[in-house]
Amino acid sequence: MTIPPWLDDFLWTYQNLIHGLGVNGLLALSMYVVLAVGQLSLGQAAFMGLGAYSGALLSMKLHWPFALVLPASCVPPVVFALIIGVPTLRLSGVYLAIATIGLGEVLRSLYLKWDYVGGALGLNGIPERAETWMMFLALGLATLALFLIGRSRFGRAMEAMREDATGAAAMGIDVRRYHLVALVASAVLAGLAGSLAAHASDFISPNEYGFEPAVTILSFALLGGIGNPLAPVAGAWFLTLLPELMRDLPEIRLALNGAIIVLAVLFLPRGLFGWRMKRSGA
């Protein structure tokens, strides 16, 4: 396959940005699946870090082929999701958010103290094996799968428990099981995003997976909305592209970025892309 020179130039110049769209899109979906069942978990950055570190270590220390590294780097986030999910899913609302932030910080300080994973310096020289098409294929398949799941009894159950967990239980829906499965799916998506990002940038460090990225991932879904799976992805893309579009205004860039998020949350509670998908699949 030959790529025309102008497109090659464009891709080369904006490579980081294009990778950011793919990775942040996956992270937005990872946030979406927990919000869609009415849970506020802020463990997505921690899941991403586990995927990034385990993927990088498998590539650098064990020299596994990338086709094995990618699925394998989803395993630690899933194990972590199960370990934190079983005891903490009894919590709800802001308590679960606080618990997951705390557990994320525990992991971050572990990376900082543990020399095998590079300590505060992080890991350097990760082989650049993640291709742009892999990110967008993963994003496309995940969006499609969540859309199809959304238009079925599973999507109805998710929306029902988001509105009223007691009412949903009275309809015969196993709310806790959905919460746990959603957390595991969230871990897979974030782990995949972390591993892809690590193999696209050659360098990772503990602070990429702390509290601030956790809030950024939440803002993707808050800004985009959670009425359908495309909305959080669009929110992520908007927030990824916004700093680039304001490149000529460096002094007020961050302030403007923040102001847009605040205004959107205040005046568009359903998000910028708030349309609600239908829930029957016949």
Binding site: R153, R156, A157, E159, A160, E163, T166, G167, I173, R279
Partner: peptide, 21 residues
């Protein structure tokens, strides 16, 4: 009353069918 207020009338009833699917 505890309906799922954002959902349509038909979708509410479909949700009641959950354990049979």
């Amino acid at each position: 009353i505890r309906l799922f207020s954002s959902m349509s009338v038909l979708e509410n009833v479909l949700t009641g069918l959950h354990p049979r699917l």
